[in-house]
Structure formats: structure tokens, C-alpha cells
Computed example of a mutant assay.
Amino acid sequence: MNACHLAAGLAAALSLGTAWAQSPAAYPTRPVTIVTPFAAGSGPDAVLRLVSDKLGKLWGQTVTIDNKPGGGGFIAIDQARRAAPDGYVLLQLDSEHVAALPHLYKSKNFKTLDHFDPVASLFRTPFFVAVSSQSKWNNMSDLIAAAKARPGQVSYGSWGVGSPGHLGGQQLDALSGLQMNHIPYREVSQLYAHVGTGEVDWAFASIPSSQGIYKAGKLKYLAVAAAKRVPQMPDVPTMAEAGGPAALEVNSFVSLLTPKGVPAAIKAKINADVAKVIADPEIRARFDTFAFEPLAWSPDEITRNAEAKSRIYGELVQRGNISLD
């Protein structure tokens, strides 16, 4: 073989090797980072670490979690936006980061799905109506009657303006003709401590965020804001069963997204591999402890569910004149 043929052969081999390294079938060929706005130790973070460990073993690559809490989620979002659209930086967001942020920060003119593509779903969490164990309210009918009798005086807490706990309270107001007083908290632990002492009348609560105080006997759950009872808390009635509006469903779902421009085949591989990991019995067992519902939605299903929430949140934000600008 002469020098020209040898050079041509080497060039072809290098070209083939480069194509293989970038092939969706070979993805990932190097470590992957998942940026998240959730603090280390939170429920979504705990699940993500378990999922990332399983993905790392499946892919034969390190999957690193980069916690960037704060800024309403924009610190994590801005970091992920700067990443190359090659599938090696993913972003974990909940449905409120996707569906509520555009309505809450209108001056930013930012729509999450204009910059990111949903790629895989992780879980959905339901929210319970929590009151002090000493409260005279035993169901949603009691709460609603008290709020109607004292307009503007019944208080509910949440873990921040624009959170599911806040917007869920706004929706309960709208559906039941109420006017309650919203009190946002910076610390979730303080929120449920104050519900337990009666300093705030009630709050929406997930199992992981409120179970410590619940197990200490300081909280009780009047209802789950869902159409079906939660298997982990079978004695807690649905919203409709407890005398509340049947249309009130308060939940949040968590997904992985990629910056716009990632090849479709790579996104499809991430979706399939995450679904495979979510089906792992160890992960299902962890989800059960949190009352997280595993999800295996397609990207289109994630988008449809986010758009449905966006329509509801847009109406609630406008009704309550809510802004984080």
C-alpha cells in the first residue's frame, strides 16, 4: 500500500471512529451531568441520585448530580441552557418550573419549553391537605365552611409564591368561592411546624415533607387532592370524598429535559433507558416510601401534561395577580 492509500485509509478509519463516538447507539461515551434546582437531601434529589446511579451502571459512565438551588429555578436552568446540545448535560425540573415560571416571571419573557425539550419522566407526587391534629376540622367541608364564615381570615401556608401549595390554594379559592390568606414560607420544616401548632390553619403537603411532624402526632390529613386514594395512606379520603371540589387535583411531576438541538435518537435512548431504570424494584420501593407515582411518559405526553398545567396556572396567576418579577 502506497503512502496515499495509507493516508486515505487512516482518514477513513478516523472518520468512522468519530462517527461511532457520536452515534446515538453508542451514547454516552463520556460522563453525563444532571443539573437540578432541588437542594441536596430533598425528595427529588434523593430519587435523582438513585436513578443516576442505576443509569451510570447501565451506561458504563459516571452520572453526576449538580445541585443548583435558588433563583426560582433559574440558576439551574441558566447553567443547563449554556450546555452543548449533545445529551451530556440534562436538567431535572418539576412541572411548575415548566408550566408556572412563564406566568410568574413575565418580564423575563421566558418559556421553558422554548429552550428545552422534555426527554424522560420520573415521578408524580400528590399533595394532602394538612391541618393541626388539634384542629376542629375533620374534613374539607369543615375547612370550606370556616373559610366562608371568615373571609380573608383562614390562612394557608406554602413553600413559596407560585409553588403547587400556593397555586393549589388559589384553585381551592376559585372552585369553592373562598378568599383565604396565603402565607409563604422559606423553610418547609418551619411551615409544617407552624401548621402543627396552629399558627397557620392548613397547608398542602407531600408525604416526604410532612411525615416527620405527622408521625409525631402533630398533623392530620383531611384529604388528598386527587381523584383516587393514595395506597400509602389508604385511610385518607379523596378531595371529593372529604366534601371538597372534585375538580381540585394538586400534584407535581418531575422530568428530565435537554437543551434544544439534541439529536432525536439520543433523546429516544435516554427516554428508553430512564424508563428501564424507573421499573427497577429498588427504585419502585423508594418511590413507595415517598408516595411518588412512577411515570414512563413519552416526551409528547410530558409536553401535553405540562401544557394542561400551564393553562390552569395561567388562569390562577391572573386571578390572584401573582408575580415574581
Rank of each mutant, 00 (worst) to 15 (best):
L10Q: 14
E315P: 10
A76E: 06
A7L: 10
A13N: 05
I283F: 06
Q318G: 04
N251R: 12
H166D: 07
G217V: 13
G72Q: 03
G157N: 03
T289R: 13
V131A: 14
D86I: 03
L14P: 01
A226T: 01
P85R: 10
A130D: 07
R304P: 05
Q170C: 06
M233G: 07
F253W: 09
A26V: 00
K215N: 08
M239T: 06
W297I: 00
P37I: 08
V188T: 14
L122C: 11
I75L: 06
P37A: 11
D325Q: 08
D273F: 01
A8N: 08
D235E: 02
N67K: 03
N138H: 15
S189L: 05
S210C: 10
L295C: 04
G152P: 13
A223D: 02
Q22S: 08
A83E: 03
F292A: 11
I213T: 11
R311A: 06
Q211H: 14
A225V: 00
A246C: 10
F74Q: 03
P294L: 00
S155F: 09
D114N: 09
S298F: 05
T289L: 10
R30H: 11
E282F: 07
K54E: 11
L58Y: 06
G196Q: 00
Y192T: 05
P24C: 02
Q134G: 13
P263Q: 08
L55N: 13
